[in-house]
Amino acid sequence: MDNSFFISSLLDNDFYKFAMQNAVIKLFPLVKAKYEFINRGKHFFPKNFSNVLEKKINNMINLKLSYKEKIFLKKSCPCLDNSYIDFLDKYQYNPKEVKIEQKGKFIKIIIEGLWSKIILWEVPLMSTISELYYKLTGTKRLSDKIITISTKKKIKKYKELKVKVGEFGTRRRYSYHVHKLIMKILMKEGKSLFAGSSNVHLSKTFSMKPIGTIGHEWVMFHAAKYGFNSADRIAMENWINIYNNKLGIALSDTYTSKIFFKNFNKKLSNIYEGVRHDSGNPISFINETIKHYKKFKINPNKKKIIFSDNMDPFKVKCISSFCKGKITPLFGIGTNFTNDVGVHPMNIVIKMTEIFIKKKWISVVKLSNSKEKSTGNKKMIFFAKKRLHL
């Protein structure tokens, strides 16, 4: 295997994908789904890119959970029960679930199959696309030495701010090598501030517990099944039914934070440790969150907000300063760690687009607090906005 730009472990994926897969298996094991690649940055792909990508995907059939990885999951991820880890022990990627086409400089990718099986494709597929793109276009990065110096400077700033940061950069990393290098630096230089990585494989490599929250697809599915108005609430309730008070960070922007807070009732506000901000103005969101907690006579200082919307040292400084004495901030740093290497990071996503329930395919959409982050069928987006009075 060419491990220089290849997924070499079944666990080279974000923790929240495994947590969601576990929940899907338990509650919605027979639901079929479709995902699509979205080229937000309108990147031009080189000739034969799809053929090389297909070979990499075909090789992923060989990935199996090792005995040591299984033991790591049992020790470090107690929220994942033994029955799920046994499922993962037998899990195998099926390349037939992924269809790739290339027309000129653009690629089209559709993933289709049982939601419980195909849910793991998104993150490793995106990181492979990103790494392969730089490899095949001959895009050179900064040296390891310069990346190390730059990362150390960021860590120094975060230490001065006395904030906690996590590494969330698997999906759009420049390469696996760079990702591992960043983790080494964080482990060595940033122990006092480093909350962990969302990447399960690298967490195992550096003997850390992986961290993570939840993905938009969980709420998007619930909207298609139960309706847009109650999707956030039912999604949160189902999550709590699986994980009790573990993994208790609520995702706030699938159908805008306005709709989220309507669903985030007193019971859920008390149960959940905090919320994640992933789009829109962070300062407005902080004020909105604090006001919401106070309405239920909940002390905001005992709650958290995880900020994961394109974070960098400047944004972290502004947000942490505003949060001081009001609410506890944590920061999920993605691309600014794993692809701040002197190249233009790719602006790509893979999103769920349809689910098969009630004997038909139903479009799923995400509205977001930022218009450019909304995804899905335009007619369904219009319908969703109408139902939600947005």
Rank of each mutant, 00 (worst) to 15 (best):
11 L>C: 04
14 D>T: 15
15 F>S: 09
17 K>D: 06
24 V>L: 06
31 V>F: 11
32 K>L: 07
37 F>K: 02
39 N>L: 10
39 N>C: 02
40 R>C: 09
41 G>R: 02
42 K>T: 12
43 H>L: 03
44 F>A: 13
47 K>C: 13
70 K>H: 12
83 S>A: 12
83 S>M: 06
85 I>P: 00
86 D>K: 08
87 F>L: 05
94 N>V: 02
100 I>Q: 12
101 E>P: 02
101 E>C: 08
105 K>W: 05
142 L>V: 11
144 D>Q: 05
147 I>E: 04
154 K>Y: 10
158 Y>L: 10
158 Y>A: 04
159 K>S: 04
166 G>T: 13
170 T>C: 08
186 L>C: 09
190 G>E: 01
192 S>C: 05
195 A>F: 14
198 S>I: 06
214 I>Y: 04
216 H>D: 13
220 M>P: 03
231 A>V: 08
233 R>Y: 13
238 N>V: 12
239 W>N: 03
240 I>L: 05
246 K>L: 04
248 G>D: 07
250 A>M: 00
269 S>C: 09
270 N>G: 09
276 R>K: 14
282 P>Y: 00
286 I>C: 09
298 I>M: 01
304 K>R: 10
309 D>A: 13
317 K>V: 04
324 K>N: 15
325 G>R: 03
329 P>A: 00
337 F>T: 08
337 F>A: 02
343 V>G: 01
350 I>K: 00
356 F>A: 04
356 F>L: 06
359 K>Y: 08
371 K>N: 13
372 E>Y: 15
379 K>E: 09
380 M>E: 15
382 F>R: 12
387 R>Q: 15
388 L>A: 00
